[in-house]
Design a protein around this nucleic acid. Structure first.
Length: 873
DNA sequence: TTAGGATTTG
């Protein structure tokens, strides 16, 4: 990340970041605060910043926040006076970007990576642990594991083989940063698979980055501009190569290059010819997950369609499971390179040929386009991204994707279904069958069979299996699936395709039970697939499993309740209108924004836990949020203004009477109070507005108890003026009212005379603010609620002035009774120490909305039109 | 070579 703190005056600065990282939640920036700050945030949308400002930013505190925020420009106001330099105010510490890199490229499998360059910058950042090394400083024997050299490929030699058969590729790298330097090029020797990969991909003129190389000194000194060392690079040595390609640009040298990255041509499925080897794209209409064939290889059968509406069934073989396409569901999109086309039974058929390679993409419109592949090297450019997007859109209306994946809670007897689950136990049963114990966190509504196996044969955590005894189910797999089942690791996430749920009853049972079989054969795609943890369905399942409390599951069981949920059917939140039916959280998360939903969920947790931290100030004009200044801030400003003497010329006008006191203490301060009159007369104290010059915090507080309104002011030559807007411009009862520094344009205090002249001055804060040119900040509650239901979890923000808790946010900070009431409400909604299953159900409305910037779109959720029911309050 | 889609019958 490249961040700059840009100062704009001495009291605040901007943190500006041009980068937008793929997944800012996973890649937070770390910022260390070097002085006391109250953050003020320019942000088109206020809700996503609440986590940031929930913290009390004090000196030395390091906080993290999503990079996406930084790109919106944050502004921090320093309470420290004087000329702090930008660096002193805040500094940007290291950021972690490894995650986003591994998302796009599996580093272990991808020693050579192609980085796409957009606007002169690589779209994918280099791993953050890599440090750039200068060509001039290379020395033999040093450790370059975490260093990289960057240069331009100025020359490459043909790929050759060494005596032992190892591939060998040699290039000359020119140091583009130091062209004038005497020594500005170095030879790079690349060995093995990397040599082969690089030879295919490298073009002259491209930027080449190599990390984890070895420096070998040349035997003799050089007289030309060549470096005295060579770089040696190989996969075995842990090297990594990054080749930066510029899509759409061709250089003159490219035509002269010895090895040019191939430009692929893709054949539509209606143009396939017998005996050809082609590249193609298709949408998966049917597939068999890889299984062990009767020959020597794994086999996967895949049927594709494309917008020509022609089908192609492909038989794909490979001895390495990883080399077959990683298809997880119908609707996935694949790109096959070098697939052989043959005619069989009057139809075209695809079959793997030498050099077959595949990429697989999630077929969901709008999902990130991240190829699943085992290839070490692949090309994937803008136009190919476009192809995937187009196919997704076509498939959305042309392929019937099987309905929502079955959960154990939704199984019916006598059907076949696919189950996404976690493996928790396994056991050999006999030669032709094998037992898998799995769970998905939901409970099968029917009694399920237990396959009898000897305890010693059962692999898996015994304690865990015992905990799951009412949730995990036995699946018996047969014949050809046994070998694959044996190799599965406990804890892994599986999708088991076409499980047969069979109703049966044993002689000694009154009621029938359900048996789960994965029969032999591969008909209808029957089989077992291992899903990686990066799979979105796995992420969701994992989050759900982690949210469960297993001891509760057993309590539920002991209650013999088939519908566990109804046991706790005591909704505690009423909603304003009932025009929506409930939507599951999973459905909401899978839908596009903006939309409105009614949900039924449990409040697993909320932030901030210290409820007073949930109160912020919001400007409805610029949509900014800020922390409520503390009393020290106000005191500081009052002390600052006390140095300004009251100007007697401004005393006693037509609309106010002025009185000055001198304090009895040693300091002998002057306090001036201007009593605003009505109809040329003083009012009762409880109806009177005062303007106060020179008071302390304590004095102003005391005055506010007795008088209706207090406006702290100071004298200038020609008028009374409001204090700095970090201080409240108005105090009324217990509430301090603040103005937005951005949006306010303070007007002369004498404008108040118009209000004073009204029939019965109400002294409404909003009216006072208006005549004084102040944009009134409103007190709001901002909280993050983590809501869960059977289908998943979702974070929703509460942004509320008064409605939700039926407590005005402006009063909470000064009213102990209201604070207790709010705490009790939260304790009712989310009782501390209670298990998830015991939490009450809440019904509320949430709306989804998009937060966009130039690079990405993120969906957020907000609670609206919801009020805590009377009996809870 | 293997599979060549089109549910086991345990």
């Amino acid at each position: 990340m490249h961040c700059n703190w840009k100062g704009q005056g001495e009291r605040f600065c901007h943190l500006i970041c041009d980068d937008v990282i793929e997944d800012p939640i996973k890649n937070p920036a770390k910022v260390k605060v070097n002085t006391h700050f109250s953050p003020f945030i320019y942000q088109p949308d206020h809700l996503i910043v609440q986590e940031l400002i929930a913290h009390n930013l004090v000196k030395g505190y390091t906080f993290t926040f999503p990079l996406v925020l930084i790109s919106y420009k944050l502004r921090f106001f320093s309470h420290a006076d004087g000329e702090k330099s930008e660096k002193e105010l805040c500094e940007c510490l290291a950021t972690s970007q490894d995650q986003s890199t591994t998302d796009l490229f599996d580093k272990a499998a991808m020693p050579v990576q192609l980085l796409k360059i957009v606007k002169g910058q690589s779209e994918t950042p280099l791993p953050s642990h890599l440090q750039k090394e200068n060509l001039q400083q290379l020395e033999e024997g040093c450790d370059y594991t975490n260093k990289y050299i960057q240069g331009i490929v100025s020359l490459s030699y043909p790929l050759t083989k060494l005596g032992d058969g190892t591939d060998f590729f040699k290039i000359v790298l020119q140091d583009s940063d130091n062209l004038s330097s005497q020594i500005n090029s170095i030879h790079v020797f690349i060995y093995g698979k990397m040599a082969e990969d690089c030879a295919k991909m490298i073009r002259h003129g491209e930027t080449f980055i190599v990390a984890g190389f070895k420096v070998v000194k040349l035997p003799t000194a050089r007289e030309d501009d060549r470096h005295g060392c060579n770089l040696e690079v190989s996969e075995e040595a842990g090297s990594a190569i990054y080749i930066c390609t510029k899509p759409g640009t061709t250089t003159a040298s490219e035509t002269a290059s010895v090895s040019v990255a191939p430009k692929y041509v893709y054949t539509p499925l209606n143009h396939l010819k017998d005996g050809t080897i082609v590249n193609l794209y298709g949408v998966v209409k049917f597939f068999k997950p890889p299984y062990i064939s009767k020959g020597t290889d794994y086999c996967s059968v895949v049927t594709l369609v494309d917008p020509s509406n022609v089908k192609l069934t492909c038989s794909l073989f490979n001895g390495n499971l990883d080399s077959l396409p990683k298809i997880y569901k119908v609707g996935d999109i694949v790109r096959f390179h070098r697939i052989k086309i043959r005619e069989y039974n009057g139809q075209m058929q695809g079959i793997t040929s030498g050099g077959f390679a595949s990429l697989t993409f999630d077929g969901t419109v709008g999902a990130p386009i991240v190829p699943r592949t085992s290839s070490r090297v692949y090309t994937f450019m803008d136009e190919e991204q476009k192809t995937v997007e187009e196919l997704r859109i076509w498939a959305a209306s042309n392929i019937s994707i099987s309905g929502p994946a079955a959960k154990l809670s939704g199984v019916q007897p006598m059907l076949f279904f696919d189950l996404t689950c976690q493996l928790v136990g396994k056991a050999k049963v006999d030669g032709s069958s094998f037992l898998l114990k799995v769970w998905d966190g939901t409970k099968c509504p029917y009694p399920t069979w237990k396959v009898p196996v000897e305890a010693k044969d059962l692999e898996g955590d015994k304690v865990f299996l015992h905990q799951l005894r009412n949730l995990a189910v036995d699946i018996l797999v047969y014949d050809n699936h046994v070998q694959l089942a044996e190799s599965l690791k406990i804890g892994s996430f599986l999708r088991i395709y076409s499980i047969h749920s069979k109703q049966a009853s044993a002689d000694n049972e009154d009621v029938s039970h359900i048996e789960f079989h994965l029969h032999g054969g591969t008909c209808y795609g029957r089989g077992i697939g291992v899903l990686p943890e990066s799979n979105p369905d796995v992420k969701e399942l994992k989050a759900f499993l982690e949210s469960l409390d297993l001891t509760v599951g057993q309590n539920m069981e002991s209650m013999c309740s088939m519908d566990v949920d109804s046991t706790f059917d005591n909704d505690t939140v009423l909603t304003d209108h009932q025009d929506l039916s409930n939507t599951e959280l999973k459905t909401i998360k899978n839908s596009s924004a903006p939309r409105q939903y009614r949900i039924r969920a449990k409040l697993r947790t909320y932030k901030p836990q210290k409820l007073h931290q949930s109160v912020k100030l919001h400007c409805s004009k610029c949509n900014s949020l800020q922390e409520v200044p503390d009393r020290d801030d106000f005191d500081f400003i009052l002390r600052g203004s006390a140095g300004t003497a009251s100007n007697p010329e401004l005393h006693n006008t037509s609309w106010y009477e002025s009185v000055t006191w001198t304090t009895q203490d040693q300091k002998q301060r002057e306090i001036t109070i201007h009593f605003v009159k009505h109809d040329e007369m003083l009012q009762h104290p409880e109806d009177t507005l005062l303007m106060v010059e020179g008071g302390t915090l304590k004095e102003i507080w005391k005055l506010s108890k007795r008088f209706k309104c207090i406006i702290p002011v100071r004298s200038t030559e020609d008028d009374l003026k409001l204090l700095d807007l970090s201080a409240p411009f108005l105090l009324q009862r217990n509430v301090k009212y603040y103005g937005c520094k951005q949006c306010s344009a303070p007007k002369p205090v004498k404008n108040l005379s118009s209000l004073a002249a009204e029939q019965q001055p109400s002294w409404e804060p909003s009216e006072i603010a208006q005549v004084l040119g102040i944009e009134l900040l409103q007190y709001v509650f901002i909280m993050k609620f983590t809501l869960v239901d059977e289908t998943g979890a979702l974070n929703a923000y509460l942004f509320d002035y008064e409605k939700f808790f039926q407590i005005p946010a402006c009063e909470i900070l000064t009213n102990n009774f209201l604070q207790e009431k709010m705490q009790m409400t939260m304790n009712t909604l989310c009782p501390p120490g209670r298990k998830l299953g015991d939490l009450p159900w809440l019904e509320c409305f949430i709306k989804s909305y998009n937060v966009r910037d130039a690079m990405k779109n993120q969906v957020y959720y907000q609670i609206f039109d919801t009020t805590v029911a009377e009996d809870v309050v």
